[in-house]
Design a protein around this nucleic acid. Structure first.
Lengths: 203, 203
DNA sequence: GACAGCTTACTGACCGGTAAGTAGAGTCGC
DNA sequence: GCGACTCTACTTACCGGTCAGTAAGCTGTC
């Protein structure tokens, strides 16, 4: 019927974009093919054409995050620890400003036991990536001498990761949570509270 | 049929107990009347007798948490800040040990946009209680001189709240997350890492 | 006989998923 | 240049299962 060449291969991306929004605001179990197809103006079966099973859609979603995140981390490699921290913080601000979405790792870990096996595997890999990055920032920060904190970089990275994930979720209900937690992390890293004034590149 | 007098009024509680477990491990949207009724050995309609709408079940669940939590906080009033922190930590350990459940505030904030209005209202109140308690611990800890940290007690309390919520979720995937984050919070509060050796009373 | 506490039996909506058909663009031999 | 064929990207029309929810009937207790 409509095989508009300008839109060729576009539907798949549109499905992913739309599903991503629903995923981050309502979760995977609460996401249905109908919600996507209705907004997109196609039939339910059209989604099934691109993603035969709901699991396929979920896996594609996480894999896209992983690729995107990998590129993002690569693009940050040359930056200093402080700038990387700024961009880390900026990441969660972007999510929050988009209709109070939360970070994918938050949705994935919360729904983890209800997810199909293949999605669990991908989630494991994705969260491993995020964890590694957070730890790397704490590590680099200490090496560069711009961050001062007790304990190992490992522990400090995990704390920042956990705190940001939790704060982003709780900010839906307590809007001051995100800024408060970010500011406190800065204090605990012995940074000046206004060290985060500059913006950064986010995926 | 079976109106066993010893079980009178027991079904309602059993429903709540079972629903609570499913709620904490799989979330509210992924929780169905069938799952509860099947395990409980009753018909679907029996659940509807006690909780006409799913929203009623959800609200009852949160209200029970609130009552329970209030009693818990009251019972802690006389304790020192350090003991209260121990019990706070113990709370999340108990959740984790019960089949990797997460804390109610984590489920509620993650699913928040998909929840019915009445549940959102209750969630707001519940998370307000938890927030207040976390801040109170940080406050008391500084007043007693047993905790040393930069910034206001408000900010430190919110950080602990966020970090524990996030860590509990992430521990499903990265099992070392919970202990690592707890230990790091202790270091950041300038406590000895083994300050948490003692157990405490948890609800 | 009134009531609590269920049951059986049902409803309509929605869920993910499938099979068969089709429009249109591209490709092929001739 | 043209018909035949193939492929992509859908559509229509279903499927059985599950969802929350309801109405009416039954049973044991007071």
């Amino acid at each position: 019927m409509k095989c508009d060449p300008s839109a060729r291969g576009d539907t798949r991306r549109k499905i992913l974009d739309l599903a991503e929004g629903l995923f981050l605001s309502r979760g995977f179990s609460a996401l249905s093919y109908q919600q996507v197809s209705k907004v997109l103006g196609v039939r339910n079966a059209a989604i099934h054409y691109h993603f035969p099973h709901k699991t396929d859609l979920g896996v594609a979603l996480i894999q896209r995050y992983r690729r995107r995140f990998e590129r993002f981390v690569d693009s940050q490699a040359e930056l200093g620890a402080l700038e990387q921290l700024v961009n880390y913080f900026e990441l969660s601000t972007v999510y929050f400003s988009r209709d109070r979405q939360i970070c994918p790792s938050g949705v994935l870990s919360t729904e983890y036991p209800a997810l199909p096996d293949e999605m669990q595997r991908e989630a494991l890999g994705f969260i491993g990536q995020m964890r590694a990055w957070a730890v790397a920032i704490a590590d680099k920060g200490r090496a560069e001498g711009c961050m001062r904190y007790p304990g190992e970089p490992e522990a400090m990275g995990l704390l920042m990761f956990s705190a940001l994930q939790g704060a982003l979720q709780l900010a839906r209900i307590e809007p001051d949570m995100l800024v408060a937690v970010k500011a406190q992390i800065c204090r605990l890293l012995d940074l000046p509270p206004d060290a985060l004034a500059a913006g950064g590149t986010t995926p």
